[in-house]
């Protein structure tokens, strides 16, 4: 009796991951704020960024940020759409846009990080 667009199997992993990524984001976003915005010198000078980005820890930090942030944000967005009764075609289109844009931004982000 229930609609099934975009559903495969249980919703439990998605629910758990949304919470885990949420917790990770709290940590990563605070870290991001301190290095990028709290001290303009470390965030806005090319040399400082360049130096930091050569460090593997910061690469991992930013890779985590982009992966977790994208997944959390897009899964949440999809969740909002799923709260409405949508026609299957509309639902599928939105789902497609979310997946494709997610992949595109992730590839772009990862490329950028790894190019340092």
């Amino acid at each position: 009796m229930y609609k099934h667009t975009g559903s495969r199997g249980s919703g439990a992993p998605g629910w758990v991951l949304q919470r885990i990524t949420g917790i990770l984001l709290v940590v990563v976003v605070i870290g991001h704020y301190f290095i990028m915005h709290a001290d303009p010198a470390s965030g806005h000078t090319y040399s400082a960024v360049l130096e930091r980005m050569h460090h593997p820890f910061w690469k991992m930090f930013d890779l985590t940020f982009i992966t977790v942030g994208l997944w959390h944000g897009l899964n949440g967005t999809w969740g909002i759409f799923r709260d409405y009764e949508l026609k299957p075609a509309v639902s599928l289109t939105i789902y497609g846009i979310i997946i494709l844009s997610g992949i595109a931004f992730w590839v772009l982000g990862v490329n950028t990080i790894l190019s340092f």
Partner: peptide, 11 residues
């Protein structure tokens, strides 16, 4: 209840 219209719509 573990369906898209099931429990996961509870926010």
């Amino acid at each position: 209840i573990d369906t898209p219209d099931g429990i996961w719509r509870c926010h």
